[in-house]
């Protein structure tokens, strides 16, 4: 059984990840709903994960896939804490519009 990287060049994986990452950046910049911004961050994390896995196969080294594993663990912890923060903000000011979250501004 052959590796897919013998038929698809690694450049196409790089391009796919770059496009996915940029979509995530556009989402963070254009949306005001805090939860959608969170989801865009997840897309960015996933594009990086995909690239790490592709290079792990490319270099025949399992370390890349271990790193993906750890990134998933950190992302899960981040989402749990972040959503708790969003719930608390909603309880206090009854909106999650990020333009309303300017209490820290002097």
């Amino acid at each position: 059984m052959n590796s897919i990287l013998q038929t698809v060049p690694i450049t196409h994986y790089i391009l796919l990840s770059a496009i996915l990452f940029s979509i995530g950046v556009i989402g963070v910049l254009t949306r005001r709903n805090a939860i959608i911004i969170f989801m865009s961050v997840e897309i960015m994390l996933n594009s990086v994960n995909l690239l790490l896995a592709a290079f792990s196969v490319y270099h025949n080294d399992a370390a890349g896939q271990i790193f993906v594993f750890f990134i998933m663990a950190v992302a899960a912890a981040e989402v749990a804490v972040g959503l708790a923060i969003i719930v608390m903000i909603y309880r206090n000011i009854h909106t999650i519009d990020i333009d309303e979250l300017n209490k820290l501004k002097g």
């Binding site: 059984m1 052959n2 590796s3 990287l5 013998q6 060049p9 690694i10 450049t11 196409h12 790089i14 391009l15 770059a18 496009i19 990452f21 940029s22 979509i23 950046v25 556009i26 910049l29 254009t30 792990s56 196969v57 490319y58 270099h59 025949n60 080294d61 399992a62 896939q65």
Partner: peptide, 30 residues
């Protein structure tokens, strides 16, 4: 701004030379 980032990333990264993997692929590492 996001489109500019995408454009720059694609322009830079598409210049990388895409070699085939040098060694025989080991399909077991995953």
């Amino acid at each position: 701004a996001g489109g500019c980032l995408m454009l720059v990333l694609i322009a830079v990264l598409s210049k990388t030379n895409s070699m085939q993997p040098a060694h025989e692929a080991n399909t077991q590492i995953g």
